[in-house]
Write a protein that binds this DNA or RNA. Structure first.
Length: 554
RNA sequence: GUCCCAGUAGCUCAGCAGGAUAGAGCAACAGCCUUCUAAGCUGUGGGUCGCAGGUUCGAAUCCUGCCUGGGACGCCA
């Protein structure tokens, strides 16, 4: 249940009927009533700009309209304590604090469910993310996409969407052939031969490792085998090795998928030719290749589907893949892509439309670059040079909690500077510790209470929570379900991180201002313990959403 | 040349389906531990919201142009 939202809905309805009763507008004319939480506490708990919006319709001065509304408003029905008209015509509402009394019991009752809503209306949404080619290690940029996608899914799930997480495996096509050739070269090198890497080869350490491993397992067996057969085997071997490593790294990063979709299955099940049949009206032959007229759908140039040599471009199976996704009946499919793929969006949008699907179902989240800093200097990362900073390295260096926190703390379309030293530091500079410390602090207090024989059951008198810091905490706690729903609806998981930080700040501030355990005021102690339990639950649920641990002791 | 993202305090970033005096952290400065963990708290200073127009009662937020930084513009993936 969402206590705050209920209060808000009630208020909106009351305002609307006041507007109608004051004959300022008819029911059809009234714009959506917008209630905002003013930044400044002196502007009340909620404010609305409805009087300004009605100025044109009612043909009156906004402040006069505001007066009329206030005169018609049934205050007690909406639990309003006080109303003020301010500025150009804002109506500020100061709510009775009694609704706050419901917050703690709600949280204690809902426990791990607190924060969940049905805002998403059970809509089916699929999020495809990471989908890294199985040709090398996951690096920084992938990790950011992984963290973003994972938290987005968590948030969507909590907001009542039916979420499916999918990883698209590029296990067909050129890059996999290159993998086989690279493995071959490293294998032969491991046997002591002087062989050059292929031009488009993968130079990562991992391929060297595969070469050595093959050498240990098979000796020179594959060197004397016919090349075609050798490459076929190396392809499968390399694929399995790389994919295994990716899956393992992701698991350690606390990222799991509901399905791993193989590009090869598209070939096997003729999905590509099926898709091409549908696109046929938009296809034409030129220069010995087959083109897709994406310009019909706003792309800046047409795209090749079938190359001169008869093979598909990368786009072609990807179109079939997206057709397959949409055929599965999702209300929305979300793709999380690195910023270097943003130019790919127009042609995929064209494909969606060419396939006959509404383009609104297709959404892409672009993840901007990550710049890594250590000792004040920028570290380069490049898969080709083999000097990539791998996710694995990062997890070992700074820990999963810090990496995940930093990666979801920022909006996906801002570039991110990741400071290794800061993420590693166990100091108050580090927001991860700051938030976790709030949780640990509460755990300590509750243990303390128990050891002093103070019962921590759920009976308490909410009316004893009247200190300013207590009211602030209660209001913040009440916002949580809306924060989650908002993060889900706007695809902005970083709002959860922000909320966590704010809640932790209020907790620390409260902690320094008020004493929780006080043998001389047992009733107040019990009320504060209940408050602490509610904060603990909310912190824990929020941390769970971003996939960061909640330590009981630090 | 075209397209995408960013430009907000010294630094890193929120805020951007228009709203009141633009926020946070770090850094700087000044305080707070005989009291539940000082990995904390309290306070002070710090801004032409890249620039210029436009729309509006009202613009950091919307529109246009320009500037700067990053990225993308393959019959690569």
């Amino acid at each position: 249940m969402n206590v705050l939202a209920q209060t808000e809905d009630k208020l909106k309805q009351t305002i609307e009927s006041a507007v109608i009763q004051a004959e300022l507008a008819t029911k059809e004319e009234i714009p959506d009533i917008i209630l905002e939480k003013p930044k400044d506490k002196s502007h009340g708990d909620f404010a609305t700009n409805i009087a300004m919006q009605l100025a044109r319709i009612a043909r009156k001065a906004p402040r006069q309209i505001a007066d009329d509304i206030v005169n018609q408003l049934n205050q007690s029905e909406a639990s309003v304590e006080k109303i003020e008209i301010a500025g150009p015509g804002f109506i500020n509402f100061f709510m009775k604090d009694d609704f706050l009394g419901e917050i703690i019991p709600t949280i204690l009752k809902e426990d791990t469910e607190y924060g969940k809503t049905n805002a998403g209306d059970r809509k089916r949404i699929q999020v495809e993310f990471v989908s890294v080619n199985p040709t090398g290690d996951l690096h920084l940029g992938h990790a950011r996409g992984a963290a973003f996608g994972d938290v987005l899914c968590n948030v969507l799930d909590a907001a009542g969407y039916q979420v499916e997480r999918e990883y698209y495996i590029n296990d067909a096509g050129n890059q996999i052939d290159n993998l086989a050739l690279s493995v071959e070269a490293r294998y032969l090198q491991a046997l002591g031969n002087d062989v050059d890497m292929p031009e488009d080869g993968y130079h990562g350490e991992d391929i060297i490792e595969i070469g050595k491993q093959l050498c240990v397992e098979y000796g020179d067996q594959w060197a004397v085998t016919e090349r075609e057969e050798r490459l076929k085997f190396f392809k499968e071997y390399g694929l399995k090795y790389e994919l295994g490593k990716i899956e393992q790294d992701l698991a350690e990063f606390r990222v799991h998928f509901d399905s791993w979709f193989s590009e090869r299955s598209l070939y096997k099940e003729n999905k590509i030719t099926d898709a091409l049949k549908v696109l046929d009206p938009y296809m034409y032959e030129k220069d010995g290749a087959t083109w897709f007229r994406t310009t019909d759908f706003g792309d800046d140039k047409d795209r090749v589907l079938i190359k001169q040599d008869g093979s598909y471009t990368y786009l072609t199976p990807d179109i079939a893949y997206h057709k397959n996704k949409l055929d599965r009946g999702f209300d929305q499919i979300v793709n999380v892509w690195g910023s270097d793929h943003h130019g790919y969006i127009p042609r995929m949008r064209a494909a969606i439309q060419g396939l006959g699907y509404p383009v609104e179902k297709f959404d892409v989240k672009i993840i901007q670059m990550v710049n890594l800093f250590e000792n004040g200097e920028k570290l380069r990362m490049s898969k080709r040079t083999g000097k990539a900073v791998a996710l694995r390295e990062l997890m070992e260096e700074v820990g999963v909690d810090a990496v995940r926190y930093y990666f979801v703390a920022r909006s996906n379309d801002s570039q991110l500077d990741f400071d290794m030293d800061l993420a590693r530091s166990q100091s108050n500079d580090n927001p991860v510790f700051y938030v976790q410390y709030a949780y640990a602090r509460i755990c300590t207090m509750l243990k303390q209470a128990e050891s002093k024989g103070i019962s921590v059951d759920n009976s308490f008198d909410a009316s004893l929570l009247t200190a300013e810091k207590e009211i602030d905490l209660l209001k913040k706690l009440g916002e949580f379900p809306q924060v989650v729903a908002d993060a889900a609806g706007k695809h902005t998981p970083h709002k959860v991180t922000q909320y966590l930080y704010d809640l932790a700040t209020l907790l620390h501030s409260f902690y320094n201002a008020e004493k929780v355990i006080d043998a001389d005021h047992l009733d107040r102690t019990k009320a504060r313990i209940a408050l602490m339990k509610a904060v603990r639950i909310t912190l824990s649920n929020a941390l769970q959403l971003i996939g960061v641990t909640a330590p009981e002791k630090m």
